[in-house]
Design a protein around this nucleic acid. Structure first.
Length: 736
DNA sequence: GTTAAGGCATTTTTT
DNA sequence: ATGCCTTAAC
């Protein structure tokens, strides 16, 4: 261990950062603006705890939202302190919960070899259950049921906790939820939300276990706190109890996951629940130019319900923000390609310095085509991940089946893939048998063969499948993990099966399967850590390397693309850009209806979230920001015309420079209908509650124009959203 | 049991 | 336009 003194740990930190890092061991709420050195504070705080407070690494827990963030934190701690952070508890909520459940599976009322399933598996299972219950799939869609179940779990509700009263729909959902739960329990399957939920119940149902962990942990840090949902917060709160100090780091302005259960209110709640929490704001930005920050601040300022922060920089103003009004989406893409080329040639930029951000994935296609045409290297983030690919899921299903014959979801997935004459009718018979006898499908299959319940042809096919799986297991017992994977994809016939597919797909699929063998080869079960009853770190006793491999794969979606190292322009959605930064950023498609998306347009809360998303986008840019919109855009095969996004109008026009490649007569949009001038004319503010003589109460969503022409968009509580001319509407501000 | 034609919806994503 | 899924025909 390298000795390190106080100054070294605090060097180069600004006053609020220092305060956060060096504060005594009590609760802290750190509101960290974009680019304010948030990760730095977390890493230095951990180092401080270890080296100044002499807390053992195994007594520190740090929770993140993605595996990537966890990995980065781990390596930066090591870099800073020189201490191997192996014993630090750094991970996502899910991975920490998973680790606990693996160790204490008995107390959590799980089977020893429980498997984690991803949302795809979950949906298949729910589909099967809905059918099994003879419920109309049209009215009670499995997708919705899945959403419903996850939402309930995120809120910490079991079926018995829900009183749906007379609501038929909710009642049916609860029925499905109940049946789903039973099926999971029987098959030893755990979905993502269940990991968190069980981990929470583990504390509640085992007070002595909880006490052990409370004695073990001396400090907890939580990153991206604005993204925690109800159950994550509850879990944390129970664990912290009255004794463990917690540092929560987050930014309410960057909360963009409300739609999947994140509770921005947890930030406010934290100060109430964690008594005496010290609040620290990090507002100095080290990432972006003055102009970019001015734009970001100005946009986000239109959100009425925020805690309030203002980013500032010691750096200079920098270049203006470039605004490009494209003729259509092709023109937009061409413009971006041109700018990328010129940055690369003239300004000495590498391609990976540049990123194109967009609201929805559908936009990537046109951009991608333009990049291909221009011969520029690019990389699209998101899209399908490695372990989500069909061929990989098939292979994994076979492997899971070797591990656990009663994994019905996996069995259904591969029983007839590749086709081996086990049709829908046969499977349905098995399902029915399983339902009636409360067994797994595998057991049903065995019985069907033994008791001769099916036609001879079906029985033969089932027998062949049974012996195939049995044979695989026997062979796999004596060979290495990667050989097992190889054996399975060969003898199952998956390779051949996917080879037969038409198009270029076949090649890619085979390569992916080979990559899976490769992943197994490099897999090291020792990377997975856990604890024993006393909370000491130990390697989890996995029944086999295969079990460890399956576990890891379930929680790690894996990267979407392999050729990470080529210098290429990064293209991704605004959501996946969170946490990243680029010298040059293009925000594409800033049009009403697309961004803010029309699905969010009528709800003030969702509109605020869109605006936060815009704020996230702007603050990704370090030096140069381009904003583009298209006057017309072909979407879903239809030509659409939209006006420029309100967010453009919310950017101060003195930070904008309009780029024009074509002769335009109109005034720059940035000045045309700025929100500032409309605010002046109406005396209203976006987000404000107003009252209208006819429509009653509502919330101001947007405004434009100036003087007597100023118009205000209001979302009325009962009459929907309307544009009103301010001069005639006589809107009265309501006191808050 | 496999393949072809029509219907339908189509934000955002991690684990 | 496109992909996904169900239904209908080989």
């Amino acid at each position: 261990m390298r000795a390190m003194d106080v100054t070294e740990l605090l060097d180069g930190l600004n006053p609020p950062q220092r305060e956060a890092v060096a504060s005594p061991l009590n609760h802290q709420l750190v509101l960290a603006g974009a680019g304010s050195g948030k990760t730095r504070v977390l890493v230095h705080r951990i180092a401080w705890l270890m080296q100044i407070e002499h807390i053992s690494p195994s007594s520190i827990m740090a929770v993140t939202f993605t595996n990537k963030a966890a990995k980065e934190m781990r390596s930066r701690v090591e870099e800073l302190t020189g201490i191997s952070p192996k014993h630090l508890w750094i991970g996502t909520f899910h991975s920490l919960a998973h680790r606990l459940l693996r160790t204490h599976w008995k107390q959590a009322n799980l089977s020893e070899n429980f498997q984690v399933m991803d949302s795809d598996d979950q949906l298949r299972l729910i589909k099967r259950i809905v059918r099994g219950l003879n419920i109309d799939e049209e009215v009670y869609q499995p997708k919705q049921a899945q959403w419903y179940i996850n939402a309930q779990k995120d809120e910490g509700l079991r079926p018995q906790h829900i009183q749906p009263f007379g609501d038929q729909w909710a009642q049916t959902m609860v029925t499905i939820y109940s049946a789903y739960e039973e099926a999971c329990q029987r098959a030893g399957l755990v979905d993502f939300a269940e990991l968190l939920f069980r981990a929470h119940e583990l504390w509640l149902n085992n007070p002595s276990l909880l006490t052990q962990y409370q004695q073990r942990f001396r400090y907890i840090l939580v990153d991206e706190f604005q993204d925690t949902n109800t159950i994550q917060y509850a879990w944390l709160r129970v664990l912290a109890g009255n004794a463990i100090p917690v540092m929560a780091v987050g930014d309410d302005d960057q909360s963009i996951y409300g739609w999947r259960g994140a509770r921005i209110e947890n930030i406010q709640q934290f100060s109430k629940d964690f008594a005496g929490a010290q609040e620290i704001k990090l507002e100095q930005n080290y990432r972006s130019t003055g102009n970019i920050l001015k734009a970001a601040n100005s946009v986000i300022d239109n959100n009425p319900t925020r805690l309030g922060k203002n980013l500032w920089t010691e750096g200079d103003q920098g270049e203006p923000i470039a605004l490009y009004a494209a003729f259509n989406e092709q023109d937009e893409a061409r413009f971006i390609v041109d700018q990328v080329e010129s940055h690369f040639k003239n300004n000495d930029r590498t391609y990976q310095d540049m990123a194109v951000l967009y609201r929805s994935n559908a936009q990537s296609r046109v951009l991608e085509e333009a990049f291909i045409r221009a011969g520029l290297p690019y990389r699209i983030y998101g899209g399908q991940r490695f372990y989500e690919r069909l061929e990989i899921k098939n292979a994994m299903a076979y492997l899971r089946l070797l591990q656990n014959r009663h994994d019905d979801a996996s069995l259904e997935r591969v029983i007839n893939v590749p086709a081996r004459a086990i049709g829908e009718k046969t499977v349905e018979t098995l399902r029915q048998y399983a339902r009636e006898h409360g067994t797994s499908l595998w057991q049903a299959l065995e019985q069907a063969i033994r008791k001769d319940l099916l036609a001879a042809r079906a029985t033969t096919a089932l027998q062949k499948f049974e012996s195939l799986i049995d044979e695989m297991e026997v062979t796999c017992q004596s060979i290495e993990l990667h050989e097992q994977v190889d054996h399975v994809i060969q003898t199952s016939g998956l390779i051949e099966h996917h080879m037969k597919e038409k198009g270029e797909k076949a090649q890619a699929r085979i390569e992916n399967l080979e990559e899976l063998v490769n992943a197994a080869k490099t897999f090291d079960p020792d990377d997975i850590e856990a604890v024993d009853e006393n909370g000491e770190p130990v390697d989890v006793e996995y029944a086999s390397p295969l079990a460890a491999f399956l576990d890891q794969a379930a929680l790690d979606a894996g990267d979407a693309q392999a050729d990470e190292f080529e210098d290429s322009v990064q293209m991704m959605t605004l959501h996946s850009a969170k946490g990243l930064e680029f010298p040059v950023v293009f925000m594409a498609g800033l049009e009403e209806g697309l961004f803010p998306h029309k699905m969010s347009a009528d709800d003030p809360n969702r509109l605020e979230e869109e605006r936060r998303l815009c704020y996230v986008g702007i603050t990704r840019a370090m030096e140069k920001l381009y904003i583009c919109y298209a006057e017309s855009r072909r979407m879903y095969g239809q030509e659409n015309f939209a006006s420029p996004s309100r967010f453009i109008r919310e950017i101060p026009h003195d930070t904008i420079e309009e780029v024009r490649l074509k002769a335009t007569v109109s005034k720059p949009v940035s000045q045309q209908f700025s929100v500032e001038s409309a605010q002046e004319a109406t005396g209203l503010k976006i987000g404000q509650q107003v009252w209208h003589a006819k429509f009653g109460e509502g919330t101001v969503l947007d405004m434009e124009g100036q003087g007597a022409q100023a118009r205000v968009q209001v979302s009325f509580d009962f009459d929907g959203t309307k544009w009103l001319v301010a001069a005639y509407a006589n809107l009265r501000p309501m006191d808050l």
